[in-house]
Design a protein around this nucleic acid. Structure first.
Length: 293
DNA sequence: AACCAGGATAGCA
DNA sequence: TGCTATCCTGGT
């Protein structure tokens, strides 16, 4: 890899903390920190290096199919539509959202490939970020293409469909093993199904995905938001639950009521709002105290 | 040595 | 519908 660093994106759309949170904060599990203000990750079969230097974002790419600038700009949501999305959020009347947007300025939703996204969120149940990364890496290492630099590509669902549940359990997946096998076999028999689903409207796509084993409301919303560009998707995990209960006074509400509230209050880009609230809540709430009540 | 974690599901009221 | 126990594994 002899390519040199190139600049990308306009600096006013990016902010160091927000960028790092976007890469490492739990929407993708393919990035890791590589020293100060520098990261390495995999997008499809490309190895991508990013760094923040001289108040600007720089990148270079290698791997068997290096990524192009346009594609990377899309992945990182570096165009103007990001600003418009932020502006459309109700931060003017919502102090909680406002403080989260200020703290994590520049935080964005990454546009990841849907097949890889489905895999990692299938693994995510009751696992922490480092554990999900580890599981993912183990799968990529065993079945995916070697891209160099100790990084491996997503093997594809076709390849994964040849796994048995026993083999999957040996990789440490626990009860998630049967989810992986079930989804892999389903998808290998229906080529193009995922792409078809991601072309549907949000609610239809959501119920389609939830037919897959191991995919409930939360995982479906993550896949749709991070892997299919459905910006209305509003995944409710424990952190968002905390935020909604404590800052929006929604204790006792059902999930369905919360989903409905999110759609009405946050609107078209509820998923972006979710990401800010998620990061903020996680940054202040690392304590396990102050639980229910 | 229990207990919990960024969930889904079956089983029951 | 709404609630609960259970599912694996790794970490505290």
């Amino acid at each position: 890899m002899t390519a040199s660093w190139q600049s990308i994106g306009s600096a006013d759309l990016i902010n160091l903390l927000g960028l790092e949170e976007s890469l490492l904060g739990g929407q993708s599990f393919s990035w890791s920190s590589q020293g100060e203000n520098q990261w390495i990750g995999v997008i499809r079969r490309a190895v991508v290096h990013l760094r923040w230097e001289n108040e600007q974002l720089q990148w270079k790419s290698s791997g068997s199919i290096p990524i192009g600038k346009k594609e990377l700009e899309h992945y990182l949501w570096l165009d103007d539509s990001y600003c418009r999305a932020i502006d459309a959020l109700p931060w003017r009347s919502d102090l909680s959202l406002d403080q989260a947007i200020k703290k994590f300025s520049g935080l964005r939703v990454l546009r990841q490939p849907i097949d890889e996204t489905l895999l990692v969120f299938l693994l995510s149940s009751a696992k922490s970020i480092p554990q999900i990364k580890q599981l993912r890496h183990r799968i990529h290492l065993n079945f995916g293409e070697d891209l160099g630099e100790d990084l491996f590509a997503f093997p594809g669902w076709e390849r994964l469909s040849k796994l048995s549940e026993t083999e999957a359990r040996k990789l440490g997946m626990g009860y998630r093993a049967k989810y992986l096998v079930g989804v892999a076999q389903f998808l290998s028999q229906r080529h193009g199904w995922l792409e078809e689903v991601s072309g549907l409207k949000y609610k239809e796509a959501r119920s389609c995905l939830m037919e897959l084993p191991g995919v409930g409301p939360k995982v479906a919303d993550c896949v749709l938001l991070f892997g299919a560009g459905k910006s209305q998707a509003f995944p409710i995990d424990t952190w968002i639950l905390q935020a909604l209960e404590r800052q929006y006074g929604m204790k006792g509400w059902t999930m369905q009521q919360m989903q409905e509230f999110a759609g009405i209050h946050f609107g078209q880009h509820a998923g972006l709002a979710q990401q800010f609230l998620f990061s903020f809540q996680r940054s202040v709430g690392q304590t396990k105290s102050a639980k229910k009540e």
